[in-house]
């Protein structure tokens, strides 16, 4: 089975899964007599499930078709994914981890400190392989950006970002 069909199949399963979760929740809503607040969610859940099933069927259909054809003739969609790109799941996970940590500590530690730390680390994580990591420059950009954004919003746009540990400023 080609990876493409496997991918389409997984997408179909995910679509159907989300639809079923939504349907269960929709049926738990109070009401269900005539037209009420539950009507539209229930109808939507039906439509979502139908589309999920259609996606699954089309994935299976393609699979059968792909098996019948010679390997060189991939299904239509292959044009989209043809571009060979090196994908780094590790960088994605690191980035997500950084964003998660940034948001979690934004309240307790505060915007100015967390932004500077996040930017510095995120610059390092995203630095292209053919670039050198320049720690002093990164640190400088991170601190300046953080300070400028914090002060700009506080002074010019009346938006008090969480000060956290720097509450005394």
């Amino acid at each position: 089975m080609s990876t493409l069909n496997k991918k389409e199949l997984i997408i179909g399963v995910a679509m159907l899964g989300a639809s079923i979760v939504y349907m269960v929740m929709a049926y738990r809503l109070p009401g269900h007599e005539g037209v009420d607040a539950a009507t539209v969610p229930v109808l939507l859940a039906g439509l979502l499930s139908l589309l999920g099933v259609m996606q699954l069927f089309s994935a299976f259909g393609n699979k059968a078709q792909a098996a019948a054809e010679t390997p060189s003739q991939l299904p239509d969609d292959s044009a989209e994914v043809a571009a060979p790109e090196i994908i780094e799941p590790k960088t994605v996970l690191k980035t997500l981890g950084l964003i998660l940590g940034y948001m979690a500590l934004l309240g307790p530690v505060g915007f100015p400190i967390m932004t500077a730390v996040y930017l510095y680390l995120q610059f390092i994580v995203l630095t292209p392989l053919n670039h050198k990591v320049r720690h002093p420059t990164y640190a400088l950009i991170a601190v300046i950006s953080s300070a400028v954004i914090y002060l700009l919003f506080r002074e010019a746009f009346d938006l008090m970002l969480p000060p956290g540990l720097l509450n005394f400023l």
């Binding site: 948001m103 934004l106 930017l119 670039h131 950009i141 954004i149 938006l159 970002l161």
Partner: peptide
Amino acid sequence: VPKHILLPIILVLCVVGAFGLSSRLFDVW
């Protein structure tokens, strides 16, 4: 301007924008 510098700063601005809606961290999440 290198992307690895630009996009993290944009993410910070996203956080600011979301927080600015009604000053709650819920929007940031």
